[in-house]
Write a protein that binds this DNA or RNA. Sequence first.
DNA 1: TCTAGATGTGAAAACGATTTCATATTTCAT
DNA 2: ATGAAATATGAAATCGTTTTCACATCTAGA
Lengths: 328, 328
Amino acid sequence: MYTIKDVALKAGLSQATVSRVINNHPYVSEDKKRAVQQAMDELGYVPNSSAQRLRNIKTNKVAVLVSRIVNPFFSQLVDAMERQAATAGYQLILCNTRIDPKKELDFFQLLKSKQVDGIIMASAENRWSAIEPFTKYGPIIYCNEYDPDATVTRVRLDQIEGGYIGTRHLLDKGHRKIAYCQGNDSSVSTNRRKGFLKAVTEAGMEPNPDWMFKNIFTIEDGRRIFNHLRELPDSPTAIFTGSDEVAAGIIKEAQAHSWQVPEDLAVVGFDDQPIAELLDPQITTINQFTSDIGIKAMEVMLEIINQPSLNTSRDILLPLHLIERQST
Amino acid sequence: MYTIKDVALKAGLSQATVSRVINNHPYVSEDKKRAVQQAMDELGYVPNSSAQRLRNIKTNKVAVLVSRIVNPFFSQLVDAMERQAATAGYQLILCNTRIDPKKELDFFQLLKSKQVDGIIMASAENRWSAIEPFTKYGPIIYCNEYDPDATVTRVRLDQIEGGYIGTRHLLDKGHRKIAYCQGNDSSVSTNRRKGFLKAVTEAGMEPNPDWMFKNIFTIEDGRRIFNHLRELPDSPTAIFTGSDEVAAGIIKEAQAHSWQVPEDLAVVGFDDQPIAELLDPQITTINQFTSDIGIKAMEVMLEIINQPSLNTSRDILLPLHLIERQST
DNA sequence: TCTAGATGTGAAAACGATTTCATATTTCAT
DNA sequence: ATGAAATATGAAATCGTTTTCACATCTAGA
């Protein structure tokens, strides 16, 4: 393992000059630059990054917090982030919290002990108040998930818009009886419902509480919801769900009861998962353009690392898109 | 940001003693140990890991090379590895090669510049000869993928066995005309075919070259293969594919032509992906128990890091399992 | 009582880079 | 021709740890 000293010796120059070449400092003559370059090449020299870091307080690493990397949304997000980070010579440290608040908090030691230059939270198991003390050790930003109390940059989707365009689409198709399913009560879900309500009231209608459902996540939940709707005295002609899985469950169960989709019931999903295209009929859905979020979040993080004054409280909203298919 | 010096000052002791406490060295009296501990707590001191590394040549990080993290197989693998690494206080650096040999090779600089303690290759875009020069900088092991020339530890599935049990299953069901699809010509595919051939010849038959296909990967490829088989003068009664996607394509297309699965054509997939359970009929497949591979690989890596003498050329084979469902 | 070994502690060197400071040389406007 | 500014280089300090070495004290066996 060669050091900068070896390179300096071989090139007949000082360590300082070698260091300047490595870091592209001005004020190094062309011929010395070449000499150093050649010495480095011949020795196959690579700077020891621990030593660099010790001086620089710079790691060229960013930690990404996700709750479950096996979730396709997260793996796609991480993929995009990794790609973006790589273009700037950064590496990505994967922090899989497995939905454990304690484990999540532990990862912030990485920032404290200067093992990463910043942390991107793509999931959040702790309240902002628990995270806040770590902000003095380096930049922290939210991506997709966020805590409304947080005073840092948040890159996220415009869920209000997402809820709005999905509903708007059903309204445009002539539907007036629209049901709505959501998952938990996260900020994402809440905003999405706001969009739904906005579209509905804009159309001069008011939402029917009998057609609004919470905590609906799985294919099985979707089946259950259909059976519930089916037995209602007044059933809706369309439904907007929080995920493609739920949409798939509803469609499958509707077909099992000889309902026609979209004629008897129009269904809009969310996420544009692979299943949305595989089903018959293919599911009309809202696409999160996951890669865009990841790229944007990493882009912003790298900006902040290079210019800490940018580390302010701001919301960066990314658009959602309607993918019209056969289920509406 | 406090340093060991601050702690020493506060505790009225030397840096050396503080360091000894941090590292659990013997020969530190109980009362000093307590004093140091208290000083550290009060200051909220965390050792700067770059400085530790600079001395120790120890990073507590392992890099994992995967070709595409968005592939569910890899994300599940990485998930398992991360979990295993975390129990030992290790972090995982995600290296997404995107199937680019150059990018893959770049990641080995992490080892060379002492940014990770070892590298697990879950994918391999370069020949072993290109990788070998890096072995002197730290342990490298293969996981699932491998180069037969490599002289390092390889944790992998017993693909021969996998090919064997899938074929055996079809034979046991009475099939005598069995087609076979594989992907590329990787070691995995080659071994799997060996297992297929072994089962077939053991049954006193010989494989029909008209029913053997290569470079079949996608759902679309599966559809194509079915249409090809359908028009053969002598068509097989069963087919063993290299992935559930291909199996799905075949089944879908067969149904589109009013063939009954498994009555007219039995189909065995590979991987046990979510789709295998969603399809109607559900796909009989071979399960890779992905988590087990990941856990085992990380376990072995940590062992080797702590005891470099274990870094020898050995094969660690993990079993594959048949999941019998409705397509056979 | 004496000595060898075990135990406890600190000063200072080391790890491998970057940066400050000092100094030497060149360029350029007057 | 002259001095100020720009360019070019190296010696040495520095980052925050761990470890070596030296030394002091304590324990126990003869």
